[in-house]
Simulated assay, not measured.
Amino acid sequence: MNIIRVSIIGFGAVGQGVAEVILKKMDYLRDLNLEIKVVAVVDSRGAEIDTEGIDLAKALERKRSKGTVALVDKTGLDVIKNIEHDVVIETTPTNIDDGGAGLRNMLEAFRQGRDVVTSNKGPLALKYTELVEAANSSGSKFRFEATVGGAMPIINLIKGVLAGNEILSIQGILNGTCNYILTRMLEEEASYEQMLAEAQERGIAETDPTYDVEGIDAACKLVILANSVFGMNATYKDVDVTGISKITPESMILAYNDGYVTKLIGEVRKDLLCVAPRLVPIGHPLSVGDTLNVASVQTDLAGPVTITGRGAGSIETASAILSDLISISRNMNE
């Protein structure tokens, strides 16, 4: 049995989703001759550490009943520096200002020679090149499928299945909250404010929705694609960004009557980084509704390849993290 020892740094929705997925997939992993042993879990109030492997069911129960998993007063950096393990699963909240704890955690993990799997967009949107260089210099693996599109496997699709193709452009809906609001505005012929309130009531939009509705989240994901796929050295500040808060139902109805739906589209190619509302023909592959994400990858050999999936959700995002973990474990044994 191949054992991969991991820490989960950040035990909010995504971190808990990772724990749930590992528990759910134990038999599947065993069939792959793989055991994922979680030796540390850290949240904002402390940590649980057990080098023999944490009981994840009990950790989840304690988090949900007490609001913290903490049994000892240790930080993510303490765990990364001092607890022997193979992979740091970094799922702390995104910080677009300076990268926050996530950036510090990833850089320290690479200094310690540990691999990193992350869902945290902020550090990659600000310091992608620095992170990749740090990983390369320490011989660490760096996987971040979960940062773009949740369960929609766009990075691994491009790097794996579409290897050998030149990627000419990527267009897509990269934020499920905006897509939900725009879908509902058209369905109900209702205002942005009304449908934002509905999205917040359903837990689809945050109490402070700025990050989503002003296009910041989509722009961060676009930067990650620009750097990882096109080899750019872009940051969030390089993206031309327009959000959805100024869109009216009247304009959407007029467009619909002409055969178009209004969508927040991100586009990257070698001379363009842009997030903005656009008119998409009804029935076009990019005209998906509700909270779905979609990306259309234009290639030189395969033509356009379009992929759709759930762009958010703790289990959906955790599925991408699990995929990256399995990929790392296979590389360890080659």
Rank of each mutant, 00 (worst) to 15 (best):
N2T: 13
I3M: 12
I4A: 10
V6Q: 07
S7E: 08
S7I: 10
I8R: 08
I8A: 06
I9K: 10
G15F: 03
G17D: 02
V18S: 06
E20V: 10
E20G: 07
I22L: 15
L23C: 14
L29D: 04
R30I: 11
L32M: 14
L34D: 05
L34S: 04
I36W: 04
D43V: 03
G46Q: 03
G46I: 02
G46M: 01
A47R: 07
A47H: 02
A57Y: 12
K58M: 09
A59F: 03
R62W: 08
R64P: 02
R64H: 12
R64E: 12
K66V: 12
G67D: 02
T68L: 02
T68C: 00
V69Y: 03
A70P: 01
V72E: 11
K74C: 07
I80V: 14
N82I: 01
N82L: 04
H85V: 03
V87D: 01
E90A: 13
P93M: 01
T94G: 09
T94E: 13
D98F: 12
G102E: 06
M106L: 04
M106C: 09
M106D: 04
L107V: 05
L107Y: 02
E108T: 15
F110Y: 01
F110L: 08
G113A: 01
D115K: 05
T118H: 12
T118V: 11
S119W: 05
S119A: 15
S119C: 15
K121N: 04
K121Q: 06
A125D: 07
K127C: 13
E130S: 07
L131C: 06
L131P: 09
L131Y: 02
S137F: 01
G139T: 05
F142L: 08
F144Y: 15
E145T: 06
A146G: 04
T147Q: 06
G149V: 01
G150I: 05
M152C: 15
M152T: 15
I154E: 06
I155L: 15
N156T: 14
L157V: 01
L157R: 00
N165Y: 03
E166T: 11
I167P: 12
G172S: 05
G172W: 04
I173D: 10
I173N: 12
I173F: 09
L174S: 08
G176W: 07
T177H: 04
E188S: 12
E198H: 09
A205Y: 02
E206K: 13
P209D: 02
P209G: 11
Y211S: 15
Y211K: 12
I216L: 14
A218L: 05
V223Q: 09
V223M: 09
V229P: 02
N233R: 10
T235E: 10
K237N: 13
D238H: 08
T242D: 12
G243C: 10
S251A: 13
S251M: 14
Y256M: 05
G259P: 00
V261A: 10
V261W: 01
T262H: 09
K263P: 07
L264W: 08
I265Q: 03
I265K: 07
K270A: 13
L272V: 13
V275N: 06
P277Y: 01
V280T: 09
P281I: 04
D290W: 13
T291W: 04
N293P: 07
N293Y: 13
S296H: 06
Q298R: 12
L301P: 08
T306Y: 01
G309S: 08
A312M: 13
E316A: 15
T317H: 04
L322Y: 06
S327E: 14
N333K: 14
E334Y: 11
